[in-house]
Nucleic acid binder design. Structure first.
Lengths: 143, 143
DNA sequence: TGTTGACTTAAAGCGCGCTTCAGGGAGTAG
DNA sequence: CTACTCCCTGAAGCGCGCTTTAAGTCAACA
């Protein structure tokens, strides 16, 4: 048993997915039917790896499988589809930007709330007498 | 029918959820049993709104319902739980940071790929002859 | 009076993205 | 030969976060 390429196990490890996910992705058309060894086992190429890493990156950023399927399908019919493919990527880039905005808003909010908790903890921890000078007068806002 | 507070409809509108979601959140304990009008209809307070907005913000940033439940439950037993609550928020802040990293990585990747598509489109659009001078020799990397 | 509309509940259903299961084959070590 | 490991397939199952359904109450309006 030789035949070049990575086994499904190896590939799964290399791109941070499970073997199940790799088969699933192939089944739903996210990746073209992959090469096989003589015994029928899958053999992944470096090109497969690059594509899978790309898919992984898109999934990590919440691109729906459906959208990835659209993109993968377009890729099959070559340069005729570059415009449409670019549009998909631009749309996803926009949703990524929106996600970043939401995340940064939440991050800032958490910074405040965490700081507030710290102050409350301080107030509890410190003996009542010692509180005079410190004006820690901000309280929890909705939780 | 008076009795102060927002109706479920109004509240849903104000915090960008559906009425269904508001009832669901109450049912699973994310929000305390809310006040009722004499006819049994829910009446939301400003405090409810603030809390719901906070929940919304956490959900938007992929905090699991389970975690929000934990946090909500802790909130009920007052200052005894500030430490634990702070830990939850700090953990979530960390996952937010991680998400931002992933998103920014993907964003950069998309910038490259989109630019690359633009070049390919250029190459296709421009008459063959005019191509000599432009060294647009970057091709698609895995998609 | 009867119809409309906003609300109520408990329970069932759904879309997503895998994950697990059941059953089988092929190669290798002891 | 047996046992073990790795792979195969098709199908069923699952956890999440709602969403929809079905059936009912109540108040206002024509």
């Amino acid at each position: 048993m030789r035949e070049t390429g990575y086994t499904i196990r190896t590939m799964a490890a290399r791109c941070g997915m499970t073997t199940h996910t790799l088969r699933y992705y192939e089944r739903v058309g996210l990746i073209q039917p992959v090469g096989r060894a003589r015994n029928g086992h899958r053999r992944y190429s470096d090109a497969d790896e690059a594509w899978l890493n790309f898919l992984h990156c898109m999934r990590d950023t919440n691109m729906p499988i459906r959208e990835m399927q659209r993109y993968a399908a377009l890729r099959e019919n070559g340069e005729a589809s570059t415009l449409e493919r670019r549009k998909i990527l631009e749309d996803h880039r926009a949703t990524i930007a929106a996600q970043i905005v939401a995340l940064e808003k939440a991050h800032a909010l958490l910074n405040h709330k965490i700081e507030n908790y710290r102050k409350i903890e301080e107030r509890i921890r410190v003996p009542r007498a010692a509180q005079e000078s410190t004006e820690t007068r901000e309280f929890a806002v909705a939780g």
